[in-house]
Nucleic acid binder design. Structure first.
Length: 219
DNA sequence: GACCAGGTCCTTG
DNA sequence: CAAGGACATGGT
């Protein structure tokens, strides 16, 4: 019953092609992936806008930035002391080790992922977001919504690595598909799958659907 | 005022 | 390994 291709088609019909991070620079995508940790995108945009105005929307600029200046610029995105530190730490690491962001991103997936996970402030989701959206290499990004939705729709409860492996085995290994499917999970989650333990209004609950748990999406 | 957001890290049991 | 707290601003 775990037909991810079918779920994707249903979501795609319901929400359209979402196209996250279209035509942005790799620097902006990476910076955004750190700023968006546990934070609404609207707030992240404010911080990105501040960085852009200050000409600090690049890894090279951030690597040389003054910490308190960085804190002020990213403040709207929340956890601003922590994020300023993470951003600067990441940027300094990249410039020192690779000389440029592109240098780091051009490595193969496994090397890149292991390296990213060793940097403070970069966990699995952020590492995978950077690999998928900035490096544009096929790795499926799992987030809290993905885990919750899969629990409700398919009734299976898996951890990050297991679910990632399962989804990657279930659909084509395609960067554009991975990007959009991940975005679709988040979009669906924002509509129907908030964190409340009991979500009676959620159409994804088992009792809300019969055979096809996401039939309502296709109507 | 309560709840939540496109997580991660650190400490405990 | 699972659970719980800290980190913080802004929208509903």
């Amino acid at each position: 019953m775990d037909d991810f291709s079918s779920l994707y088609r249903a979501l795609r019909r319901r929400f359209g092609f979402l196209n996250w991070w279209p035509g942005e620079t790799k620097d902006e995508i990476v910076i955004g992936s750190i700023l968006t940790q546990q934070t609404s995108w609207a707030n992240v945009e404010k911080a990105i806008c501040n960085l852009k105005s200050a000409k600090m929307l690049s890894i090279a600029a951030i690597s040389k930035a003054d910490l308190s200046t960085l804190q002020k610029l990213v403040r709207p995105s929340g956890f601003y002391r922590q994020k300023a530190l993470r951003l600067k730490g990441f940027a300094r690491y990249v410039m020192k080790k690779h000389g440029s962001l592109e240098g780091m991103l051009s490595q193969d997936i496994k090397t890149l992922r292991d390296e990213l996970l060793g940097i403070n402030g970069i966990g699995k989701e952020t590492a995978d977001s950077i690999i998928l959206y900035a490096a544009e290499k096929p790795i499926f990004v799992i987030d809290a919504y993905t885990i919750r939705i899969v629990e409700r729709v398919f009734g299976i409860s898996l951890g990050y690595d297991e679910l990632q492996e399962k989804i990657e085995r279930s659909i084509d290994s395609n960067v554009e598909l991975y990007k959009d499917f991940h975005a679709q999970f988040v979009e669906l989650g924002k509509h129907y799958c908030k964190t409340k333990p009991v979500c009676t209004s959620c159409p994804l609950n088992k009792q809300c659907a019969t055979g096809n748990r996401y039939q309502h999406l296709t109507n």
